Simulated assay, not measured.
Amino acid sequence: MLELRPCCECCGTDLPPASLDARICSYECTFCVACAEGVLQGRCPNCGGELVRRPIRPADRLAKHPASTVRKVKPTGCAAA
């Protein structure tokens, strides 16, 4: 099950569970659309994998399986990735 991480790893932008702006790789590294399509050019800086839109978990399922609250942000941001 996806963690639905709460923010972009590069810039720290909040990405709530229903956000259409969240992008993930197959390891669930999470980025905002601006970072993913901008400086990262559609590739995860951690594994090199493709970044795709994170699916939205239905509200009734989100109540049973809540999103993560653990924020993972790179101290150096995207530029140093």
Rank of each mutant, 00 (worst) to 15 (best):
M1C: 11
M1S: 11
M1N: 10
L2K: 13
L4T: 12
L4A: 08
R5I: 05
P6F: 03
C7K: 04
E9D: 15
E9W: 07
C10W: 04
C11L: 05
G12P: 08
T13F: 12
D14I: 14
D14H: 15
L15K: 08
L15F: 02
P16K: 09
P16W: 06
P16L: 05
A18V: 05
L20H: 13
D21N: 09
D21H: 09
R23E: 00
I24S: 02
Y27H: 15
Y27G: 14
E28S: 12
C29Q: 03
C29H: 02
E37Y: 13
G38A: 10
G38E: 01
Q41A: 15
G42T: 03
C44F: 00
P45T: 09
C47L: 01
G48A: 05
G49W: 00
E50A: 07
E50K: 12
L51V: 08
V52M: 04
R54T: 05
R54D: 01
P58I: 09
P58K: 09
A59M: 04
A59N: 10
R61E: 08
R61V: 12
L62F: 06
A63H: 15
K64A: 11
H65T: 08
V70R: 15
K72E: 09
V73Q: 07
V73I: 13
K74C: 00
P75V: 10
P75M: 02
T76C: 01
C78R: 02
A79F: 06
A80K: 14
A80M: 08
A80P: 15
